[in-house]
Computed example of a mutant assay.
Amino acid sequence: MQITRRRILTTGTAALAAATLPIRAWTQTTLRMGDTEITTLSDGTLSLPADFIFGPMPQDELAALLPGLGIDRGAALTPPCNLTLLRRGDVLALFDAGSGTAFQPTAGSLPDALAAAGIDPFDVTHVVFTHGHPDHLWGVLDDFDEPYFANAEHMMGGIEMDYWMDEATVSTIGAERAAFAVGAKRRLDVIAGDVTRFGDGDEVLPGVVAALTPGHTPGHMGFVIGSGADAVMVLGDAIGNDHVAFARPGWISGSDQDPEAAAATRLAMFDRITADAMAVIGFHLGQGGIGTVERLSEGYAFRPSA
């Protein structure tokens, strides 16, 4: 397993003629396993109030923990958004679709990151969703409400698809997430006839097996790519950050729709990841999102690989 990291600098054509315009940069981390190449691409960052994650946690214990993790309890959280791109033979598969332009102004940069990597959206063969939250789904359509990855097969877990397509979800998900439900259904309505559903344990692509990891959303899916010492797990948001989710995985997080189920899922995932010595790719983990997990005397730590 070989992991590399590189920074790509790009400008638009007009910017090439204007030295005063800023040059944008994307950092990619690439993992190679035999004939498989896995690259993380940035869709930008989110800006979240700290209480969105920390609100339901034990505050005294949290206050003692955060300084050692380099986190200011009073500051907004700005998690990165790392999409996973898999290349193998004729397969060019993207895990999740990013947020598009309608969610947060700091996110939605996937089209630029794809262009910087020399990838045409029409060449993407598969888009495989971990779940239906805005930063993972809303980029599936362009600004004209047409599929952005027009030639791709779109794939989503059946439980997750049914949840977001259910008319009742908008009234049961809670007021703070009602827009998530409206936005998900509107986008899934466009592609629903072309979505391939899958379940826990299904091989969604050759050598890529789905794993039901519920709690963050009802049908959240992770994916194990490869096997044995070369296996890597695409986490999605089941392990949603590289700080408290690792240090205290049993604590409930405000970011999860079913916090208790999500905590149980995290604990089970950490047991599996460390037992099998799997590498991990996290949508909101730092430094490119690819790394390994170290078991500590209490909790775990994310070790970026590049």
Rank of each mutant, 00 (worst) to 15 (best):
Arg5Leu: 07
Arg7Cys: 00
Leu9Ala: 01
Trp26Cys: 00
Leu31Lys: 04
Arg32Ala: 11
Met33Gly: 01
Thr40Ser: 08
Leu46Asp: 01
Ser47Trp: 00
Ser47His: 10
Asp51Ala: 15
Gly55Lys: 07
Gln59Trp: 07
Leu65Cys: 11
Leu66Ile: 05
Pro67Lys: 01
Gly68Glu: 08
Asp72Thr: 07
Ala75Ser: 05
Leu77Gly: 03
Leu77Tyr: 04
Thr78Pro: 07
Pro79Asp: 01
Cys81Thr: 05
Gly89Gln: 10
Asp96Lys: 00
Thr101Leu: 03
Pro105Met: 03
Thr106Lys: 07
Ala117Val: 05
Ala117Phe: 08
Asp120Phe: 00
Pro121Leu: 05
Pro121Asn: 06
Asp123Tyr: 06
Val127Tyr: 09
Val128Arg: 03
Phe129Asp: 03
Thr130Met: 10
Gly132Asn: 03
His133Cys: 13
Gly139Asn: 06
Gly139Val: 00
Phe144Trp: 09
Phe144Asp: 14
Tyr148Trp: 15
Asn151Ala: 13
Glu153Gln: 02
Met155Thr: 04
Met156Glu: 05
Gly157Gln: 00
Gly157Asn: 04
Trp164Cys: 11
Trp164Tyr: 11
Glu167Trp: 10
Ser171Arg: 14
Ile173Asn: 02
Glu176Asn: 08
Ala192Ser: 15
Asp194Lys: 13
Thr196Asp: 11
Arg197Met: 13
Gly199Tyr: 12
Gly199Ile: 11
Glu203Pro: 04
Leu205Lys: 07
Pro206Asp: 10
Pro206Gly: 03
Val208Ile: 03
Val208Glu: 01
Pro214Glu: 10
Gly222Lys: 04
Phe223Ala: 01
Gly226Ala: 13
Ser227Thr: 14
Ser227Phe: 12
Gly228Ser: 13
Gly228Leu: 15
Met233Gln: 00
Val234Asn: 09
Leu235Lys: 00
Gly236Met: 07
Gly250Ile: 01
Gly250Val: 03
Ser253Thr: 02
Gly254His: 10
Asp256Ala: 06
Ala264Lys: 06
Thr265Val: 05
Met269Pro: 10
Arg272Ala: 15
Ala275Ser: 12
Gly282Tyr: 12
His284Asn: 08
Thr292Cys: 09
Ala301Lys: 14
Pro304Trp: 12
Ser305Gln: 15
Ala306Trp: 15
